[in-house]
């Protein structure tokens, strides 16, 4: 890890934290809001690559555990790791890592379709899987029912993936060196 790596890890951790200042959109039934913070998680994966994106989310989660209210609505503290959203938070680390990994593997043959698929894979496999498993375990609801409730996130995810996709496309033109 060079200094440059550490600074960019800190930067993306801060981006995820800053996006938490935007108000969350509550979702019916399950207590997990749609938040712009996953936008930062996806961007971290794309910009930093697997390992550093993973660390960036870890730094964010660490500050969250230390009691800083960095989640939307001013939530924070170690309590969030025992609450219903805990699995999704762990999933952020996994999702950022997965998106980073996919971008690293296919960095020479990226197409728009592939990029959109990667971003969706990251948010669905990476973020939802731990989230659903934890929520179904903690609330004692079957996984199938939690999956159904989870469908409420899909529209928000489509919007977020679209935003990230266009940001990346325009950044490639503006700053060709920022993305490998």
């Amino acid at each position: 890890m060079t200094i440059k790596d550490i600074v960019s890890i800190a930067l993306f951790a801060a981006i995820i934290a800053t996006l938490g200042l935007l108000p969350p959109i509550p979702v019916p039934i399950i207590p997990v809001p749609v938040t712009a913070q996953t936008l930062g998680v996806m961007l971290a994966g794309v910009f930093l690559g697997s390992i550093r994106a993973f660390y960036a989310v870890l730094v964010f989660l660490f500050l969250l555990a230390a009691g800083f209210p960095l989640l939307p609505g001013g939530h924070g503290g170690i309590g969030v790791f025992f609450g219903p959203t805990a699995g999704y938070l762990i999933g952020w680390a996994l999702g950022a890592w997965l998106i980073g990994l996919l971008y690293e593997i296919f960095c020479n043959s990226l197409t728009s379709v592939k990029e959109i698929i990667f971003l969706f894979l990251g948010s669905i496999i990476g973020i939802y899987c731990p989230g659903i498993i934890w929520l179904s375990y903690e609330a004692d609801i079957s996984i199938y029912q939690v999956c159904l409730a989870n469908l409420f996130f899909i529209p928000g995810d489509i919007i977020k993936v679209t935003i990230v996709f266009f940001i990346i496309r325009r950044l490639r033109k503006a700053l060709p060196n920022a993305l490998r």
């Binding site: 550490i6 800190a10 801060a14 730094v59 660490f62």
Partner: peptide
């Protein structure tokens, strides 16, 4: 793990938040 580097990353993050704002 490098404790000094982890501490640097944590304090940098806290510094970056108001800058981003």
């Amino acid at each position: 793990a490098h404790p000094a580097k982890i501490s640097l990353a944590l304090s940098l993050t806290l510094r970056f938040i108001p800058i981003l704002g």
